[in-house]
């Protein structure tokens, strides 16, 4: 509970925040990933630039696609009618982060910048093809969620860059769901599965699947998607998708003494089926 010394300043604009960040600074939004790390002295920034009150980072809007500000909180996203309609799986995932107090402060931008492999929202962002919008003093760029998450706690974000927003395609014509097996201690995902299905007359026209928790980062599962696409989501297709899923995540699997890789891998298959059932309603 005793971080090293640091300076603090509050930014009024994205430009002001970018100008202030310095060589060993950190952007502070909700603080629910950064501050615990600082308390344990795992993170030792010499200054914090508070971006939580920059209006430009706060909104959620739906105009063709869904646009979420980097500093929108989990609670705002979970409660948003726009998100609930355009990507209900993201609302579900954000509603499962931490507890209400954490969701009231924690932000989606902060969450993905931290890139905890067991966190819930990244899995949905990868499944649903989100785009991450990034700005620095050198300009702006965008990167797909699949490329944004690089490895364990590692992202494409470079020093001095700020996540300004996250956009997702409107998939209100999809059936999507996120479910997880929570770790009994932390309630982070032992495994989390997001699915997004486009159904056409009982046939799955398109399937998007991602797995987190069991893997070092949220992983898009092309093999499982192929097994589901064109099927009626019957038992045989689900079995084939489950088999394919273990290959999809095989290279990225992680585990620990309490919940080893073999268990997480098996549960990814179980929760794929459960997620599909949840998506079908």
């Amino acid at each position: 509970m005793w971080p090293q010394q640091f300076d603090y300043q509050r930014a009024d604009s994205v430009e002001g925040a970018l100008a202030a960040i310095g060589d060993n600074g950190k952007f502070l939004a909700g603080g629910h990933s950064l501050l615990p790390a600082m308390k344990l002295r795992l993170s030792t920034p010499d200054q914090l630039v508070d971006i939580s009150r920059i209006d430009a980072l706060r909104g959620i809007s739906r105009n063709g696609s869904l646009a979420i500000g980097g500093a929108a909180t989990h609670a705002e996203i979970a409660a948003s009618a726009a998100v609930g309609s355009a990507c209900p799986a993201l609302a579900q995932a954000c509603g499962m982060v931490g507890d209400q107090a954490v969701r009231n402060f924690g932000t989606l931008g902060g969450n993905i910048a931290h890139a905890d492999p067991a966190s819930d929202p990244p899995t949905v962002l990868v499944a649903c093809g989100a785009t991450i919008h990034i700005q620095s003093v050198d300009g702006s760029r965008s990167v797909g969620a699949q490329d944004f998450f690089v490895d364990l706690f590692e992202t494409d974000l470079q020093d001095g860059e700020l996540i300004t927003g996250i956009s997702l395609p409107d998939c209100s014509d999809c059936q999507c769901a996120y479910i997880k097996l929570p770790h009994p201690a932390s309630r982070y995902a032992i495994v989390g599965v997001a699915v997004c299905l486009k159904m056409n007359g009982g046939i799955c026209a398109q399937a998007d699947v991602a797995v987190g928790g069991a893997t070092v980062k949220a992983v898009k599962c092309a093999g499982a998607e192929a097994a589901l696409t064109g099927s009626s989501l019957d038992e045989a297709a689900l079995a084939a998708a489950t088999d394919a899923l273990s290959d999809d995540i095989g290279d990225w699997l992680t585990g620990d003494v309490a919940y080893p890789e073999a268990y997480r891998s098996a549960m990814a298959g179980v929760f794929l089926k459960r997620a599909i059932n949840a998506a079908k309603g």
Partner: peptide, 19 residues
């Protein structure tokens, strides 16, 4: 409690130790 073979406490926080 889980210790690893080198005696490190792997359940050193409430994220890992399940109350």
């Amino acid at each position: 409690v889980i210790y690893d073979d080198s005696g490190q406490l792997l359940t050193g926080t409430m994220l890992d130790y399940c109350l």
